[in-house]
Write a protein that binds this DNA or RNA. Structure first.
Lengths: 348, 348
DNA sequence: CTGTTAGCGCATTCAA
DNA sequence: TTGAATGCGCTAACAG
């Protein structure tokens, strides 16, 4: 058997033009379905292009038009359910508007995030949708985008005090609701799994937790609050810390699902049955979170909706670049969802 | 407060050249760290470029070089753990070789997959790594890549009988091992959750299941095999079917984790305790799968490793495009992993 | 409706 | 070592 290496064809509009004995701009117009070409020549061009195996070179086209019809999305990790569902929402909204989406992950590293922004700008994307890494503390690395006039919209994880639009969860309210939900079930000793403290979203969720305790006359105890770097091992650590607490806890409010799931898994591995009367409420869209025992209630962040909204705002800004505009800040309230109908603490 | 819309700068190498009273080609050389420029002018150029806020236009650069240093990856859905870990492996290997990665999802639709391939080719990526959608039955839509000489490598979900390199799981062996593992524990009535029947990987996993039964003298019963379109509702259907079976099952081999997790969730919601003496083995890297009860054993597909390997092969082909090469086919054996130390059927 | 001309921003060849 | 000239492939302005 022989393996023939076929030489790549490099058919351009000029080749088509020559074959048809017409001008390349006519070919270009035909291929772009311009109204200023006869149906007849249009048909001839399309036929010939197909025959010759012509494939448009978008590098050249985009360079000429200085428009790529592409937006970039940067998230910490695509494997996290919230982010992949947000991306689904972004792609849906972008597709409707005839845009392509380039998905990138910073892997929670600031240096990678900065690098990605520069690459996206260098590739002249029309806009960027961004949820920052846990190492990112300010928006200075967006300078390269600002310089080029590339619109940027934050979602979920954002930088404070910047002139960029944002689409956010109501983290404070979510934390408050989750905690009060537990309190209303009779919980008094509520553990809080927080996240990386640099990120505003975890700060705000924690503030909601504190406020709910305060309102209900329960003292805040810092020893019941555990941080996390969103790795599985942090969840395991949290589980161990719970076991060592000198008091009996009756509720957990987890601001991130990684900690909650990993903690539950660890306890299970240890053969420790989590008492049925401990309630867990978590910020989570992860479907598998519903499997963890004894979790039941999640704060649905509706990644899809947030992604769509962020995309809409980005397009507004792209299309009004020359006009003065005030950065928007949209806050979406997460809703408490009962995701499991198992008999729960709340039922007894 | 006023919002100033800063005009985008469009500094090019010519602007830098003019400011420095030198030629733009010298600027180009300096920016590309060419050895044919004085250290001194190089320094001057870099300084001025920085001052003026110059940002390279990769569209122009890539067009000129007809090389993008970018590879495209198409997967059905980034939210599936196997694929996101494969992507992590791909990005790692690509980054080492100085390549960028464009991540795309076909959403399991053939039309989108075809469209993505054309867009990637139109953007002149240097190569494509692909795991096909469940609707894809052949490789004809790769014609646009072949025509342009764009290398393509399959991983995991592939098309049979094509001249493209592939990196695959040993699906037959995995299915065989999983089933035999169950048989050795004493299971006789083993249910099999399969996947979309168009995909070779599920066909091969099922063949492994059948072979293991045959070898151990257990008759194959088609009523114990359930297909799935990898949606949660299919898993729920599977659970319902299990409940209606006229015989008591004692083992499940799941070729996809979506079915397994959704089925377990459904049973739990119904308040049905899955007998402790049912063993479950699944093709899955999904960490949360370890939480499902009574699942414990998974066939680790090592997405990361597969992704890395696919990338290595792609680079080989990119770098040897002019040379004859035979498509490679690499098969990686998945290993049975005990992912939970809970007391299991196998222990009693 | 079609052709001519020019140029997007860059890298590279050839001269000097 | 630097400059001048060319063209990657395409689209858009202008002319006819």
């Amino acid at each position: 058997m022989k393996f023939i290496v076929s030489q790549p064809n490099n058919i351009t509009i000029h080749d088509i033009a020559e074959a048809l004995q017409i001008n390349s701009s006519t070919v270009s117009r035909a291929l772009n379905n311009s109204s200023r070409v006869t149906q007849k020549t249009k048909a001839r061009v399309l036929k010939k292009a197909d025959e010759m195996g012509y494939q448009r070179n978008l590098l050249a086209s985009n360079l000429r038009k200085s428009k790529t019809n592409t937006i970039g999305v940067i998230v910490p990790r695509i494997s996290r359910h919230f982010f992949s569902s947000a991306i689904a929402g972004i792609e849906e909204a972008a597709y409707e508007s005839g845009y392509r989406v380039i998905i990138c992950q910073s892997m929670e590293q600031f240096s990678r995030e900065k690098d990605l922004i520069e690459t996206l700008v260098a590739n002249r994307v029309d806009g960027i949708i961004l949820s920052i890494s846990m190492e990112t503390t300010n928006a200075k690395h967006l300078e390269s985008a600002r310089v080029k006039g590339t619109s940027v919209v934050f979602f979920d994880r954002h930088c404070d005090g910047t002139n960029y639009s944002k689409v956010l969860n109501d983290d404070f309210q979510g934390g408050f609701d989750a905690t009060e939900h537990l309190i209303k079930q009779g919980c008094q000793n509520i553990v809080h799994f927080s996240g990386p403290q640099q990120l505003k979203i975890y700060e705000n969720r924690k503030k909601g937790y504190q406020q709910a305790l305060k309102k209900n006359g329960i003292p805040y105890r810092s020893e019941l609050v555990f941080n996390s770097k969103l790795m599985e091992k942090d969840g395991v650590e949290n589980a161990k810390k719970i076991l060592q607490l000198p008091l009996k806890i009756d509720g957990i409010f987890s601001a991130n699902d990684i900690s909650a799931i990993a903690a539950m898994q660890h306890l299970k591995k240890q053969g420790i049955q989590i008492p049925k009367d401990i309630s867990v409420v978590g910020f989570s869209n992860e479907p598998s979170a519903a499997v963890i025992e004894p979790a039941l209630t999640t704060l649905d962040q509706s990644g899809r909706k947030i992604g769509q909204k962020a995309t809409e705002i980005l397009f507004e800004e792209i299309n009004n670049k020359s006009v003065l505009h005030k950065p928007k800040s949209i806050v979406i309230k997460p809703s408490l969802l009962q995701r499991s109908s198992t008999q729960r603490a709340s039922d007894h």
